[in-house]
């Protein structure tokens, strides 16, 4: 079965956190669980729904993993005025994309967003941040811009959690623990 928009199926937003999405998914699984419809006429429909929900969730998880860094977007579902720029970005030709954007007079939210993408790819993160912010402010309802903006804002946290998951501990803590151990050890000796 083809899924139109996995986020719609789960009733969540594109920029919702993984936790929220997981929660929504669990609720839906409970709702359509076959055990609930054992003797009901709705059994087949519930099954179908459940399958849809499962696929949508898998899809989101897979997609999110793929775009752990960099900002990707749905090319298929997209209808905007900068098709060529988006094609260039998808090809990795940032110079051409940048060129078209610079010469464009239509400086709408999408223009700001796409410049942000180009800056991001170029390694100009501070600029990218400002452009994503502007795009999001100009069109707060657009989930694409909202995602880019919130991902940018959480960059520091993403890196930090990476570091801590590798076992980083600040040295001060270690010393505290050492002191505690010594203290306990000396108590034992008495």
């Amino acid at each position: 079965m083809a899924i139109t928009d996995p986020y719609k199926v789960l009733g969540v937003n594109r920029n919702d956190s993984e936790e929220t999405i997981k929660k929504a998914y669990r609720e839906l699984v409970k709702k359509y669980h076959p055990d609930k419809y054992l003797d009901s006429d709705l059994k087949d429909l519930a099954n179908e729904k459940l399958q849809e929900v499962n696929e949508a969730y898998d899809n989101i998880v897979k997609n999110r993993k793929n775009k752990d860094y960099g900002y990707t977007y749905d090319e298929g579902s997209y209808k905007g005025s900068f098709t060529e720029v988006r094609q260039n970005i998808a090809k990795g030709d940032y110079a051409s994309a940048d060129n078209i954007l610079r010469n464009s007079t239509n400086r709408n939210a999408e223009w700001h967003y796409l410049r942000g993408v180009v800056f991001q790819k170029q390694g100009w993160y501070d600029q990218a941040y400002s452009y994503f912010e502007k795009a999001h402010m100009m069109d707060p309802s657009n989930s694409e811009y909202a995602t880019a903006y919130s991902q940018t804002r959480s960059t520091a946290n993403a890196y930090r959690s990476n570091v801590y998951s590798r076992g980083y501990n600040s040295a001060d803590d270690d010393f505290c623990r050492l002191c505690q151990c010594m203290l306990c050890a000396s108590l034992c000796c008495r």
Partner: peptide, 8 residues
């Protein structure tokens, strides 16, 4: 952000 972005 400016410092962590390149590190990330």
């Amino acid at each position: 952000f400016i410092l962590y972005a390149p590190l990330k």
